[in-house]
Amino acid sequence: MRQKFIELGEGYTDIYELIELGRQMPERVKAALAFHSEINGQSKTSLALIMKPAEKFQPIYICREGIPNPHEIPNTRFDLFQKMTEEIQTDIHEYTLKPSTMFPETDLYYQYLIGILRSNKELPRLL
């Protein structure tokens, strides 16, 4: 099964699309994620939804490093994401990771995230 990140944007207005995906398809949401990292001295957070597989494909929708870390600077966008996860009865799993800026290509960053998610049993291993 192929697992792939689908980047919706950096979380400014596209976070509302991510929230709507969760609300419209709660039965497909496998996990909600928050990735915290530091970029140029600023704490940033990515929000993501792992969806249940469809055929031979498992999408992971993400808004990458676009909102402040809510543990340092409370913000409405994270609050809205958290409210959606409460509505669909899903917990947010949080990770502190390297930022995407440490990787020469975004695809390498996403491979790094997939490795972390497989290690933590958020994603099934490839057979």
Rank of each mutant, 00 (worst) to 15 (best):
R2L: 14
Q3D: 03
K4D: 09
K4Q: 13
F5Y: 07
I6W: 11
E7A: 05
G11A: 07
G11Q: 05
T13E: 13
D14V: 06
D14C: 07
I15E: 05
E17C: 07
I19G: 05
E20D: 12
P26N: 06
P26W: 08
E27K: 06
E27R: 06
A32Q: 01
L33T: 09
H36F: 15
S37M: 06
G41H: 11
S43K: 15
S46D: 02
S46E: 03
L47T: 02
A48P: 03
L49E: 02
I50W: 03
P53V: 03
E55Y: 10
Q58D: 12
Y61T: 05
E65M: 03
G66L: 06
P70E: 05
P70T: 06
E72W: 03
I73G: 01
T76I: 11
R77C: 00
R77F: 01
F78C: 03
Q82S: 12
Q82N: 13
K83P: 00
E86M: 08
E86N: 10
E87H: 11
T90G: 00
D91I: 04
I92G: 03
I92E: 01
H93R: 11
T101A: 10
F103E: 00
P104Q: 15
E105M: 10
D107E: 14
Q111P: 02
Q111M: 10
I114F: 06
I114K: 15
I116Q: 06
S119L: 13
N120V: 05
E122T: 01
E122C: 08
L123D: 02
P124S: 08
R125Y: 09
